[in-house]
């Protein structure tokens, strides 16, 4: 049995078939979640944004022209909403002094309350959080999500050459941060 294509799902949804949208969610929820999670580094924040990504997608899907692939389009929404969430969080944290510290603490504790042992992963994540938005975006999409430069260029509407430079700078900065942290221990 041939799996139904993204474009067919979009068409079905446009014709009012709700299950088609549910299928789109099932198909992409994990990929979108992990992109958003890598940006926000917190499950609850990521959960909110992922829901918003699909709600926004549903609202705009009727106007989706299919110039890009569906997942590229979803990634673009996810990146934009994640960057917005980061900005909002920074503003809120600036004023809400008593809640500072929550940002980094969520991932340290697993569901069973155990402190995760993966220090290197956390070092990389914390370094990635310090990157400027463009470098951070490229870093997340390339380093974690394994997207090609061409795919990222399509998502961000930018050139492959610029992305390579951004990714290289991002990687160097993260690597330097990790080395520095190792050096101070």
């Amino acid at each position: 049995m041939t799996a139904i294509s993204d474009q067919e799902l979009v068409e079905q949804f446009r014709q009012g078939r709700e299950p088609a949208f549910n299928e789109i969610v099932l198909r992409y929820q994990e990929r979108i979640y992990w992109v958003v999670r890598r940006f926000l580094n917190d499950h609850d924040d990521a959960d909110d944004v992922v829901q918003d990504v699909f709600i926004k997608a549903a609202r705009n899907l009727r106007g989706f022209r299919g110039d890009s692939s569906l997942y590229t389009w979803l990634y673009r929404i996810a990146v934009n909403l994640s960057l917005n969430a980061i900005r909002r969080k920074r503003v809120a944290d600036f004023f809400r002094l008593d809640d500072i510290g929550d940002i980094a603490s969520h991932d340290d504790i697993g569901p069973d309350g155990r402190v995760e042992a993966d220090e290197q992963r956390q070092l990389i994540e914390s370094a990635a959080q310090q990157l400027p938005p463009k470098q951070r975006t490229v870093f997340v999409l390339r380093y974690y999500e394994d997207l090609s430069y061409e795919e990222i260029a399509e998502i961000l509407h930018t050139s492959v050459g610029g992305l390579k430079a951004n990714f290289f700078h991002a990687i160097r900065k993260v690597a330097e941060h990790v080395k520095r942290q190792h050096g101070t221990r």
């Binding site: 992990w34 380093y143 993260v174 690597a175 080395k179």
Partner: peptide, 16 residues
């Protein structure tokens, strides 16, 4: 420097 970032931690994901 960059090789530091390779390896299994790239694939490791936080808990859900």
């Amino acid at each position: 420097d960059i090789a530091l970032l390779g390896g299994p931690q790239r694939r490791r994901r936080p808990a859900v």
